[in-house]
């Protein structure tokens, strides 16, 4: 249907343009502020024309927040989380879709229910386990009385300890399980015709071969989409890294932003803070731009 409604079109475009301005304005202010000097950024109202101090602000932010190190930590962290999520969810979905075993619906729904239990809800127990990953086993031993039995028989006090604080495993592992990813993969696997699995069976490949040779290559677009979303999500994590990286040397870029925010009595150098913000938000932005094509394809349809 072709409609000729110039006035309605105009109204639509105006609303869209307004929305765009509202969405982009904060970014514009961040970018402009990061080019100003200390004096200009503190005048009221702040000038809305860029100045020439961009480079020196970037340098100041880089040094003050130790961004060289922190960005590397952040990248390792976000890549591990995203890759972990892709691997885990592709495998979990594979089990759920392709294997008939008792309780697979229960397992699927258990995974699905975790959508309702984000990290923020279970943060105290999760922290406690990260502080000592063997704590649950210790608890089992204590409750069953094995600890005291062993202490009585061998004179050894069993004390299992495996701290994950200030380590990559501690940072990454609690974030790796993902119901969203598993669900995305499950839906994708369901679109793959059964004959493909049967053909590969006739060709003599077992489940692992089928997974590696057929399913993974076919789910490439899916994988890239999930990786991109999860990378951005992990990059922006704040609460968990803040809790677990108690050692200031081990922090990640996003939590490090707080060192850039001027304190109450310090120098109000918001220009440097804004420059730091720009640096920190650029890696996910670059990734999304690079992956855009794949990303959209992976979300809207399967490669035909």
């Amino acid at each position: 249907m072709i409609e000729r409604t110039p006035i309605f079109n105009l109204v639509c475009y105006t609303i869209l343009a307004l929305g765009l301005v509202i969405a982009l304005l904060p970014f514009a202010i961040v970018i402009i502020a990061s080019t100003l000097d200390l004096h200009a950024v503190n005048t009221v109202p702040m000038p809305l024309t860029p100045s020439v101090h961009f480079w020196e602000n970037l340098q100041a932010a880089w040094v003050r927040a130790d961004l060289g190190n922190k960005l590397v930590h952040s990248i390792i962290f976000a890549v591990s989380v995203a890759a972990g999520k892709v691997i885990l969810s592709s495998m979990a979905a594979f089990t759920i879709v392709y294997f008939r075993f008792p309780g697979r619906y229960v397992i699927f729904w258990l995974i699905f229910i975790t959508l309702m239990l984000p990290l923020e809800v279970r943060i105290v127990p999760t922290y406690s386990i990260a502080a000592n990953a063997l704590q649950p086993f210790q608890a089992i031993l204590d409750v069953t009385g094995l600890t005291s039995l062993i202490a009585y028989l061998f004179g050894i006090q069993v004390k299992l300890e495996w701290g994950l604080l200030n380590s990559y495993p501690g940072l990454v592992l609690p974030l790796v399980a993902t119901a969203t990813g598993t669900f995305l993969y499950r839906q994708f696997y369901l679109t793959i015709p059964d004959e493909l699995a049967e053909a590969s069976k006739m060709d003599g490949s077992g489940p692992v071969r089928f997974f590696l040779d057929i399913l993974l290559p076919l789910s490439r677009a899916n994988m890239i989409a999930l990786f991109t979303i999860m990378f951005v999500w992990a990059w922006n994590q704040y609460l968990w890294p803040l809790l677990i990286t108690t050692d200031p040397k081990f922090g990640i870029a996003v939590t490090e932003l707080k060192t850039l925010i001027p304190s109450e009595f310090g120098l109000p150098d918001w220009n440097v803070a804004m420059a730091g913000t720009l640096i920190i938000m650029s890696p996910p932005l670059i990734l999304v731009i690079l992956m855009q094509r794949w990303f959209v394809r992976g979300l809207i349809s399967t490669e035909k």
Partner: peptide, 27 residues
């Protein structure tokens, strides 16, 4: 046994040569 399926069930991401040779690759 080898089987030919109604809708062919070819592996869409492999070339014709890879499709034909897949069984040999597996073995």
């Amino acid at each position: 046994c080898a089987m030919v399926f109604q809708n062919y069930a070819l592996y869409p991401h492999m070339t014709v040569a890879e499709n034909i040779g897949y069984a040999l690759k597996v073995s």
